[in-house]
Design a protein around this nucleic acid. Sequence first.
DNA 1: TTTGTAAATGAATTTTAATTCACCTAATTT
DNA 2: AAATTAGGTGAATTAAAATTCATTTACAAA
Lengths: 192, 192
Amino acid sequence: MRSKDETKVQLILGTALKMIERVGLAGLKMSDLAKEAGVATGTVYIYFEDKNQLIRELYLYLMHYNTADLNQPISENEPLKIKIKKIARNYLNNNINNPEHGAFLEQYFRSPYFHEDDATHQAEELALQPIYSLLVEGQRQSLIKDADPELLVTLVCGMLNEVAKVSIYTQKPITPAEWELTFSVLWDGIRS
Amino acid sequence: MRSKDETKVQLILGTALKMIERVGLAGLKMSDLAKEAGVATGTVYIYFEDKNQLIRELYLYLMHYNTADLNQPISENEPLKIKIKKIARNYLNNNINNPEHGAFLEQYFRSPYFHEDDATHQAEELALQPIYSLLVEGQRQSLIKDADPELLVTLVCGMLNEVAKVSIYTQKPITPAEWELTFSVLWDGIRS
DNA sequence: TTTGTAAATGAATTTTAATTCACCTAATTT
DNA sequence: AAATTAGGTGAATTAAAATTCATTTACAAA
């Protein structure tokens, strides 16, 4: 008897993720994937039913990962503005440090592998929950514009997503000055 | 003699664009495309070398289209704030009314069809030029935060892109209240 | 009208990539 | 340490999709 190597699942998924960032979902070949992961083609089929399921798993794996990540503990006893600044920075860093994630998800939602029942929305909402809560808290303290918090989250994330994209694209990290400006636009935009 | 029907190029590209929004670049089959466009498979190959070139053409076609579009004349003799509000609304509407465009471009940039030399950046910069100019004008009038205008454009477009995405996704148009909030966040964010 | 030519067709072919499988190997159990 | 069993391999197979091409129109010029 020989037991399945759970490490290999991670290896294959991780390799797929990196490759997809490079060649796109449309360009991912099972044989290339196997080669790059350093296993035989057939091995991939031991751990995954077929390509479809592999992509599916990758999605679930990412969702799980992402959701966990924004929930880093926020130091209490700080002014709300600072809390928001920290969580925003956290969100931005997450996006910049894991460009493969955004690249994959962007494509997944538009691919033939994606089916509506994928709990997309729940997962996304869950991931944004912490930001949402902070904004609502701010509204209660009359610090934040009294308007649909959903829309506020959308606007805030829109800014951060785009900044992340540019940073990834230009391969330049965010400078302190850039971050200060970004947060200033964000904060002045939402404060009441 | 029989002459090529230029209309057919448009038909095929347009059909491809709509299909890609639905099934993704990875899901586009030449035979399906032909069927949906109402022509024979072979006909597609009369107008396009191969799939690769078809996708490439589609990109050029879109770039051309998009660039032209933001350059709608802006009524002069209005306060800058109003001008920015109008151009922002224009940008938003463009995104919402042509969801296929965003869907395609998003995927194209990450596909095996895309090559760096595609003049991506020039085209994009060109499209954002009008917004950029207005912001700089605002800085000269000390109405807009005195900071890197590139980054300001990024932030502004980020907000608008995300709002467009949500509107497309939920299939709900932007309500007047939503638009007012969006612009208020945008404006308060960038004004000095 | 007739004729020449290029567009249009879609079944047949070729190409590409997914998936299988007969054979090998390494871990576990007795 | 032998036997057993499931993992691992990669060439061979199958499936899917791109592309071709012999044939059939439709148009334009003569």
